[in-house]
């Protein structure tokens, strides 16, 4: 339907267990549901602390959906697939 490219940003702080888990989970969901239509950027705040303010990051890890708007944020290690999909507003099955 919408062929918009999704822009996702994952904020992490170093290679913590939570960060690694979150990234792995996210990649899995994206490949599953948004194959070829997404751009994922991982920002390590340990290296770029100044970027935290812009997206109002408090919790780590935080996934931000920049496009499509509105901006949505999901915090946590993204272990609950259902909630991530709801949070990102991805309707499974639509692209199956």
């Amino acid at each position: 339907m919408d062929e918009e490219t999704w822009e996702l940003r994952l904020y992490v702080a170093g290679q913590t267990v939570k960060s690694v888990t979150a990234l792995a989970n996210l990649k899995k969901y994206c490949e599953e549901h948004l194959h070829g239509r997404y751009r994922l950027e991982v920002i390590d705040l340990m290296q770029h602390p100044q970027l935290a303010e812009g997206d109002q990051i408090l919790a780590i890890p935080t996934l931000v959906r920049k496009v499509p708007s509105p901006i949505r944020k999901i915090i946590g290690d993204l272990s609950n697939q259902e909630r991530v999909l709801v949070g990102l507003d991805i309707r499974p099955g639509l692209h199956k």
């Binding site: 979150a22 935290a52 990051i57 780590i60 946590g76 290690d77």
Partner: peptide, 23 residues
């Protein structure tokens, strides 16, 4: 902080706040 914008899934901490403040 706006709860309506934030979905919580699983484990997290507030390291982001620390980093911001520390920065």
């Amino acid at each position: 902080v706006d709860r309506s914008e934030i979905e919580e899934t699983g484990e997290y901490d507030l390291e982001g706040l620390f980093i911001r403040l520390g920065y």
